[in-house]
């Protein structure tokens, strides 16, 4: 039996409150952001809107010539392209372990490994700042125990981003782990049973059953992780303020500084919109690439 077509206004009253809010507080600002990026909106315009001028693509041209933007973009790409795949790999590894048929107390292990996901990023960044302390931090103590050289984690431009990546993996892997576990559980057991009868090794089962069957999960996980990682902000804000030597300055942090510290809102909007275009390109590319593979 089909639902009768209701008078359109019934649905309207159910949808209107949420949709009006989303339009007013999300879609409208996004569109305004594009317009803003074509103006020289700055601290003077903030006080007196008469001073606002249309500058066409000036902000974008300035962006292309701004070494700070390129540094921020390079750092963000580092975080996305190194941190992202590592996060996904750790998530998959954890999911395979927890979901292994010989493992007992699956629920308990899953919950404990998931715990960092629900924690507050700012608080965690504070904790890791102290774990990374060059003299009293626990990480260097461990390195010392293993007979390795200690590292000035957050003070060395070469190590600051890896340190942030390590923390991000710890904080985030549980999320994708849960999604991978759900994906693994949806693979029919009879596929493995057939493989065992055919004498396929564990590795071959993983390579030829698990991985292909997980492909849709992979697409979802990589796209979600990439979108999230491109928005890197709180970690460098709390742990390094973008330093040392701008080695952890991210695009979102640059936008925040330009927009809300120096009140160059026009320029900051251009930074934000460029970030959006990069994320959009990345997402479309990923989906295209995967579609061809499958």
């Amino acid at each position: 039996m089909k639902t009768p077509l209701l008078p359109a206004n019934t649905a309207f009253w159910f949808l209107a409150p949420a949709l009006i809010l989303i339009v007013v507080f999300f879609f409208l600002p996004v569109a305004a952001s594009l317009l803003l990026s074509f103006t020289d909106f700055d601290i003077y315009a903030l006080g007196d809107h008469e001073r606002l001028r249309f500058v066409a693509l000036d902000n974008y041209l300035r962006l292309l010539g701004d070494p700070l933007f390129w540094t921020a973009l390079k750092n963000t790409l580092y975080f996305v392209l190194v941190g992202g795949p590592l996060s996904v790999a750790v998530s998959l590894g954890a999911a395979l372990l927890v979901n292994h048929r010989l493992v007992r107390f699956k629920g308990l292990f899953r919950s404990l490994l998931f715990l960092p996901v629900v924690t507050t990023l700012v608080a965690i960044a504070v904790v890791w700042r102290y774990l990374y302390h060059p003299r009293y931090g626990f990480l260097n103590y461990l390195l010392g125990l293993l007979g390795l050289d200690t590292v000035d984690w957050l003070g060395d431009p070469d190590w600051a981003m890896p340190a942030i990546i390590l923390m991000a993996i710890w904080k985030n892997f549980g999320f994708n782990m849960i999604i991978f576990i759900a994906g693994l559980q949806s693979i029919p057991v009879r596929l493995y049973e057939a493989a065992v009868i055919d004498g396929a090794s564990t590795w071959r089962q993983f390579r030829h059953i698990t991985l292909p069957m997980l492909a849709p999960t992979f697409v979802f996980v990589t796209v979600i992780t990439m979108i999230g990682y491109f928005q890197l902000f709180a970690e460098p804000y709390v742990m390094t303020q973008g330093g040392p030597a701008n080695s952890t300055l991210s695009v979102a942090l640059l936008m925040f500084q330009e927009g809300f510290r120096w009140w160059n809102l026009g320029y900051a909007a251009a930074v934000a919109f460029t970030l959006f275009l990069i994320i959009l390109t990345g997402t479309v590319l990923q989906l295209r690439l995967r579609r061809r593979e499958i």
Binding site: F230, A272, I279
Partner: peptide, 26 residues
Amino acid sequence: RFKGRDRLFRLLLASMVIPAQVAMLP
């Protein structure tokens, strides 16, 4: 059921790729 329901829903879903930071300045 209403006209354009699925199209509207797909539009909303697609806009989830827009990072919140883009909206923050305006």
